Amino acid sequence: MMNTIGNENYQVSDIMICAMARLIHNGENVFHGVSSHMPMLAVMLAKALHAPEAVYLNIPGGVDPKPKNLEKYTSAGAELFQQAAAIFPLAEVFDLSMRGRLDVAFLSGIQFDKTGNVNASVIGDYHKPKVRMPGGAGSAVLIPTAKRAIIWRTKHDKRTFVEKVDFVTTRGNIDRIVTPLCIFKYENGELLLDTIHPTSNLQEVIDNTCFEVKYRSIEFTPLPSKEELTILRRIDPKNYRNIEF
């Protein structure tokens, strides 16, 4: 979806990716899982701008890759070995996290509730589910053990942000949840509204969230700068960042 604000056109994906990139600090070890185009671009964007010494880790195992052909990549393909500084297998990422050395893990889920529980396992009763999903996989290990777990989700509705998740795949230790409408921050055991995207508003967030939306003040997510948009469009010329919408 394209939104015109001022003289610039913004996609919601642009706002989400730039917001995620700003959460990455220079020198941090950062990981994303499979089917993670938006976090992948967020890491690349952060490294191109304010965090050149961040260490980029991924499912295939290429450390700090520099893909030659940016028009043909996935978030878990062989391109992430191109010009890599080293090879770091996935099992070592889990070990790194459990030793307290993984600074950021970008992960996702299907349901979230106000206390930060994450469901990536089933919809409905666990023994007779309506839908059975992939399950915890890396999330069950990395969300509790990474220094900061940053969640992204391309849907924000009452089926996603529920009063109580159908199944607790993992819980706690969530730093932020980035959605097409806003960013939630996990603080003192509950989700608080951190910022609202300029393409949305408080009422839209409330209308699409089952639990009470709490906040200290109404703040808006900064729009992508011209520099951020220029680099983002260069590293993603075919607009793969919208593949999840």
Results as ranks from 00 to 15, higher is better:
Ile231Thr: 12
Phe94Leu: 14
Thr145Ala: 04
Asn69Gln: 10
Glu71Phe: 12
Lys238Ile: 11
Leu142Gln: 06
Leu181Asp: 05
Ala91Val: 14
Ala105Gly: 02
Lys114Leu: 04
Asn9Phe: 06
Arg233Ile: 01
Ile143Asp: 01
Ala86Arg: 09
Arg153Gln: 13
Thr115Lys: 09
Ala54Pro: 10
Val63Ala: 02
Ile24Met: 06
Ala78Val: 13
Leu232Phe: 01
Ala46Leu: 10
Ser13Tyr: 03
Tyr56Glu: 02
Ile206Val: 12
Pro224Gly: 05
Ala85His: 08
Phe161Lys: 01
Ser108Tyr: 03
Ala84His: 08
Thr199Arg: 10
Asp175Met: 08
Lys130Cys: 05
Val178Thr: 12
Pro180Ile: 00
Ala120Cys: 09
Met98Thr: 10
Lys214Val: 08
Leu107Pro: 02
Ile231Cys: 06
Leu70His: 01
Lys47Ile: 07
Lys158Trp: 03
Asp157Arg: 03
His50Glu: 10
Thr170Ser: 07
Gly138Met: 12
Leu181Lys: 13
Asn58Glu: 09
Ile59Val: 15
Met133Leu: 15
Thr199Lys: 06
Ile17Val: 07
Leu49Lys: 14
Pro60Cys: 12
Asp113Leu: 04
Leu41Gly: 03
Arg171Pro: 00
Leu96His: 06
Tyr126Val: 15
Asp157Pro: 00
Leu45Arg: 06
Val165Ser: 02
Leu192Lys: 15
Ile218Arg: 13
Phe167Val: 01
Asn26Thr: 13
Arg99Leu: 11
Ala21Glu: 03
Glu204Arg: 10
His37Ile: 15
Val205Gln: 04
Ser36Lys: 13
Met38Ala: 15
Leu202Lys: 12
Asn69Phe: 09
Ala120Ser: 13
Ser217Trp: 11
Ile17Cys: 01
Arg99Tyr: 06
Lys68Thr: 06
Ala137Phe: 14
His127Asn: 13
Thr154Ala: 13
Gly61Ser: 04
Asn242Glu: 15
Asp64Thr: 05
Pro237Gln: 10
Asn201Ile: 02
Ile15Trp: 00
Glu204Tyr: 05
Asn3Phe: 15
Arg241Leu: 00
Gly61Trp: 03
Leu193Tyr: 04
Tyr56Phe: 12
Cys182Lys: 02
Phe81Met: 12
Gln83Ala: 14
Val30Glu: 03
Asn3Met: 14
Asp194Met: 09
Ser200Lys: 08
Asp236Ile: 03
Val122Ser: 03
Asn3Thr: 13
Pro224Lys: 14
Phe184Ala: 07
Thr74Cys: 14
Glu79Asp: 08
Met1Tyr: 14
Lys68Ser: 08
Gly62Ser: 09
Ile24Cys: 06
Asn208Ser: 09
Ile177Asp: 00
Ala120Leu: 10
Pro237Cys: 07
Val168Glu: 07
Pro129Gly: 13
Thr170Trp: 03
Cys18Ser: 15
Thr4Ser: 12
Tyr215Gly: 02
Phe167Ile: 00
Met44Glu: 10
Lys68Leu: 12
Leu191Trp: 00
His37Ser: 15
Ile150Lys: 02
Tyr73Lys: 13
Thr221Met: 00
Val205Tyr: 00
Glu228Thr: 08
Lys72Glu: 13
Glu219Asp: 15
Cys18Lys: 06
Leu107Met: 15
Phe161Tyr: 11
Tyr215Ala: 11
Glu163Leu: 08
Pro67His: 08
Ala146Arg: 02
Leu96Thr: 06
Ile174Val: 11
Gly61Glu: 01
Ile59Thr: 13
Asn58Gln: 10
Asn69Thr: 10
Tyr215Arg: 11
Glu219Ser: 15
Arg148Thr: 02
Ile17Asn: 01
Phe88Tyr: 14
